[in-house]
Design a protein around this nucleic acid. Sequence first.
DNA 1: CAGGATCCCGCGGGATACTG
DNA 2: CAGTATCCCGCGGGATCCTG
Lengths: 99, 99
Amino acid sequence: MEHGDGKKVCPIRAVAELLSDTWTMLIMRALTEGPKRFCELEAWLGNISTRTLTLKLQTLTEKGLIEKRTDNYYTPTKKGSGLKIIEKAMLKYSDQYLN
Amino acid sequence: MEHGDGKKVCPIRAVAELLSDTWTMLIMRALTEGPKRFCELEAWLGNISTRTLTLKLQTLTEKGLIEKRTDNYYTPTKKGSGLKIIEKAMLKYSDQYLN
DNA sequence: CAGGATCCCGCGGGATACTG
DNA sequence: CAGTATCCCGCGGGATCCTG
């Protein structure tokens, strides 16, 4: 019984694969605070390149975490909004253990 | 007020910088389940290279998330155990939205 | 068993310039 | 404003062999 096979993988792994890159959590955090447009995200994130933001928005869309509205606002889907519980846990952790 | 300056950065960013790589969450998850030795971790993780595991264990130690006991068991520190609240949130999320 | 030492590679991601 | 298109680079990370 491998850990890496296709069947019932560790759920932590699944979530980790969803979130484990430099920008995903930050973008999702920005969007769960409220829908934002491309340039607003750029400003909010501060130091992301247009290329990277474009790519991230694409993959997040493909993963079903966000959607692009016709007015060019990006907004989290249900699946994306669900991440709030993880964000809250992160905030709590940060509060208790960091800095 | 920049986002990226040295002062009061978004806590999500701090946590993200702590966790946003392929292996950290998985290793921490393994260790919060119980202290493990190098080879046990290798087995548990399934497909990690010795080099990468070594490096990750080093940086996790530097970040104060784990400690190496004299009997060669790696064990989470308080700061590391605190991640459990994030793991729980991830499990809940996975349960609700994934698969 | 617990790693250190090397070698090597892909891709995540930055900078910049250009387009509808 | 909302991207697309190139170019380029570092480093995260795998494979393999070696050591205490």
